[in-house]
Design a protein around this nucleic acid. Structure first.
Lengths: 104, 104
DNA sequence: CATTAATAGACCTAAATAGGGCTATTGTCA
DNA sequence: TGACAATAGCCCTATTTAGGTCTATTAATG
């Protein structure tokens, strides 16, 4: 199985995984759509990598009992963060950068 | 931190995580948008949970070096699947269900 | 091997998101 | 603490996806 490179390919790969999860539960696309409260077309798009919204994805994950996956995106910082030694709270904004020069 | 229940809340939670990843790299929203090849607004929507496409999410994950997360959705089957003992290949469709009765 | 339901793929319209710009607020840093 | 850039939150329009329906193909089952 090739590793996706382009964004489209990742979308297709994600679709494959969703389908795999669905089939493990032996659900058809219509059942999944109904239980997720979305249209059959949305499920088709999602599974085939033809474009989908985050909402469709999440609704589907809820039915497939994999919403917990969403929490695994930003892993908790491994060891004790150096930042905690100097600043109280984590950064809320990126550092300001010098503004671009304006035309005179 | 409360566990999200509604779909909207999961979208917000996901946004929080993306923001956390971005700030760890000290990138501002504009830089992230540029590097991801999407609009600033798309990043804002994504981080605030106000609706986004899968495409926007994936483009951003690429910049944040977290596309590998996508592969962790459908975990490989743990032990030897019983299915392999009876059928050669995994299921490609859900089982047919009896069709609805048609009106006479 | 015949049956038949699951799925792909197309079409259309409505709704949502993307993209671009503008202003108000506020965290960061000198 | 002041200056200023990062961000939120609007607006508007273009593009994309959702939702609904139909047809053709094909995997799954008896």
């Amino acid at each position: 199985m090739a590793v996706p490179t382009a964004s489209d390919e990742w979308e297709v790969e994600l679709g494959r995984q969703i389908r795999a999860l669905r089939l493990r539960q032996n659900l058809d696309q219509q059942q999944l759509a109904d239980q997720a409260g979305i249209a059959l077309n949305a499920v088709k798009n999602l599974e085939s990598g033809k474009g989908a919204t985050l909402r469709s994805l999440i609704q589907v994950l809820r039915v497939l009992n994999r919403v917990d996956w969403l929490r695994a995106l930003a892993p908790a910082v491994s060891i004790i963060p150096v930042q905690m030694l100097k600043t109280k709270r984590p950064r809320q904004r990126a550092s300001p950068r010098p503004a671009k020069k304006k035309k005179l």
